[in-house]
Design a protein around this nucleic acid. Structure first.
Lengths: 136, 136
DNA sequence: CGGCATCCTCTAGGATACTG
DNA sequence: CAGTATCCTAGAGGATGCCG
């Protein structure tokens, strides 16, 4: 639970998009998901795991700029939420493979959609920004 | 973050999902979009603006827990990126209406998809979590 | 009403070092 | 290789007050 939202059960957390606004079982779903996957790295990790399982350091190399600590933390979090599975092969040195679960793959679909949008519209955003910065 | 502002074409910023990985025009698009919309409030604002334009305080009331400052900041950011438009009617007191632009509506689609996923799978996530916490 | 400006807190997350 | 542990800073973001 979030410190901001507290435990106010009656609060209309998000009434937009009637359908999955709040469903009286604990607030707005988007918010709940955002709280878990909305951090800096989760999306990128899911993104990278989509093609197939990866080992820890491979993942670390793939996601430019992530620290060892944050990769560990993020992976644990995703594992905890059932989005990623962790498989250890007791060789020496150990091999640990991370993979998307079925749930993980299912969330990867909308995330991919966002990626597609990003690829298509990044220029528009850039132009909007420089226009905004230039004058208005 | 790394100083990858240079034209170092060698860095594999994100090689997952070949198609919108990096397109040699400045790194991974998903990353760029995440940098702008991946904060705590942007998605929720877009979400709330989807049904129609809203005034500042209406928006503030709708998005439970957001501070005045953060709403202002977030709206400016979205406006800057061309996702939201701001219209002032010079009445007294002034009326300021925020609305999604066309670009804003277009990004709302994949965001909505995420919302749908959230509504459908939040229980699965919760169960996974308590299972993880219990022992596994 | 719809904002800025200021101050201050708190935590996400980087750097570094050590281990099985 | 794949982590854990510790330490520490930058910046996100809340609280408050003032203004057109």
């Amino acid at each position: 639970m979030n410190a901001r939202t507290g435990t106010t059960a009656a609060a209309p957390l998000l009434q937009a998009s009637p359908g999955f606004a709040q469903d009286e079982r604990g607030g707005c779903p988007i918010r709940e998901v955002l709280d878990r996957v909305g951090d800096t790295w989760s999306i990128l990790v899911i993104f990278n795991l989509q093609p197939g399982p990866m080992r820890f350091n491979a993942l670390k190399r793939a996601i430019e700029g992530i620290s060892q600590r944050m990769l560990t933390v993020t992976l644990r979090s995703l594992e905890r939420d059932g989005l990623v599975s962790r498989t250890v092969r007791p060789t020496t040195p150990p091999e640990v493979e991370y993979a998307l679960t079925e749930l993980g793959h299912s969330i990867a679909v909308p995330i991919d959609a966002l990626g597609v949008w990003a690829a298509r519209n990044r220029d528009a955003m850039r132009m909007a920004r420089s226009a905004f910065d230039t004058g208005a």
